[in-house]
Amino acid sequence: MLRYIIKRVLMMIPVIFGVVTIVFFITAITPGDPAAQILGPSSTEAQRAELREELGLNRPILVQYGSYLKNLVLKGDLGTSYIRKAPIAKEIAERFPTTFKLACYSMILAIVIGVPIGILSALRRYSWIDIASMSFSLVGVSIPNFWFALLLILVFSVKIGWLPAIGISSPAGWILPVIATSVASLAQIARTTRSSVLETMNMDYIRTARAKGQKESVVVFKHMLKNAVIPILTVCGLMFGMTLGGQVLIESIFAIPGLGKYMVDAIMSNDYPCVQSSVLYLSVVFSVVSLIIDLLYAAVDPRVRAQFKSGKPKKIKATAKA
């Protein structure tokens, strides 16, 4: 098991390196002169040239990339913001915990509600519970989450006045953002759970378990769920990534001082390095979460462990039937 964990952690390094490279070169192809962006249209050519020199923008692109990597790896330095001239790494570190909290709360809500709904829908297929919850989750998959956030504000704070529209200074302030962020993942998790349970329901071993007179609760929890859990885990991992991305708008709507709002503000003011670094940061977090999910596969499924023990860890195929 330990060897498996070490191997997976090592496999993450090229992925993160690739992400850094892609994000760096995406920003590098940006047309236009960053110096002109920073100094504004009233600047003179001499001023711009001086700034380019200062930021090292007139060096060849590969040299820039090299020094970017060096600063990143050795000092954890992500560069400085164009607008505020502050070190980005510090700004991100201050905002990240809020974002991570919001993502975790939403994922917990989505899993705690989505999985039982999915199981129930599968067990009572074509009942009103199934039809109602699957219709709701279809809407949940289709709804733009930022619009849902606006609707929640309109109903619960403007019309009824129960909950605050912005800010997270009180615990009540978290309720609407968490609901808005979780809606898409909740729906997707419910759908995946349903189809995964439905698939295992028709397996021979389920029939065997029932035939030998096993209690229904044991059949459902021990035989069915244990075998249906891999696609559910997969979709939870994917949804975590979607949550991190979707949160960008939610945070700015509810004025939550997290990375998402930071990014939107940076987009508005053309502050490229801030956007670039935030994306990088969140992608790395997403990679770590995916890694944890991968390790969970091995924890819940002896087949995955066995594949590894035989010396040749084969990549398991856990396709999410969304």
Partner: peptide, 24 residues
């Protein structure tokens, strides 16, 4: 497929935001 994996480890919305930002 390695390249695709790497591309996929950047959350889609964020990748789209960075690209849209870079391309104007």
């Amino acid at each position: 497929m390695r390249f695709i994996d790497i591309l996929q480890s950047i959350p889609g919305t964020l990748l789209a935001i960075t690209l849209a930002m870079a391309l104007g």
